[in-house]
Design a protein around this nucleic acid. Structure first.
Lengths: 109, 109
DNA sequence: CGTGTAAGGAATTCTGACACG
DNA sequence: CGTGTAAGGAATTCTGACACG
């Protein structure tokens, strides 16, 4: 199942009210950080936001930075650097997936 | 943080609507399986249910058993057997925690 | 810039009950 | 036994806007 293969940490299943409880941030703050492209919750069909545990961890980091007086713009820049290696890893895995699919189709199936 | 120390899998943070999406079960079915003591979602202050990924996995198992015609009573019995070892493990860890706390308080603090 | 708040509407969730079987 | 459904109420979430600064 695709459900099993994805780590729970990145599944977008948490509503904004719970995120508020878990982070201590206000709804306004959470929505604003999305507006500033610091987090990227999914939306369900009717438009309500769905967050992952990763989003929550990110929000906790953001809250800490904000307490230090760092502006959202700066935080976004810092986060870009940090997520780059992850993107590279993802890309690598995607390529491997493509390769495997290709191999399967031509040699085994 | 206590947040970090607990695996995401067991955090009760998912609302019943998402559980329905993820399991394909109806709200009625999910609530009924709780009534029959097959799952144990938390409740927030206002009484709305909060499920964990573990609950969702359990529900998928339950759905499979039900398709085979197994009654909820039977499913509960089967699940009791399966969760016993986990309870033992938890108990062991709790005891170790108590021991460590005791040791710390008397010898180190 | 970052956050609070009141506003109105839409969608969610809850419980207890009746239905069928 | 297991599930559907209509009912009424309460709580959630959404957006765009005004406020302050």
């Amino acid at each position: 199942m695709s459900f099993e293969s994805m780590p729970y940490k990145d599944k977008k299943v948490i509503s904004i009210g719970i995120v508020r409880e878990l982070t201590g941030l206000s709804l306004r703050q959470i929505r604003y950080y999305e507006e500033r492209k610091l987090i990227f919750p999914d939306r369900n069909e009717k438009g309500t936001r769905r967050f992952s545990f990763s989003d929550i961890e990110k929000l906790i980091e953001i809250a800490n930075k904000r307490e230090e007086g760092v502006q959202t713009q700066e935080i976004r820049k810092e986060m870009k650097k940090e997520t780059k290696p992850i993107e590279k890893k993802m890309l690598k895995e995607m390529l491997r997936g493509q390769f495997n699919a290709h191999f399967k189709n031509n040699k085994l199936m």
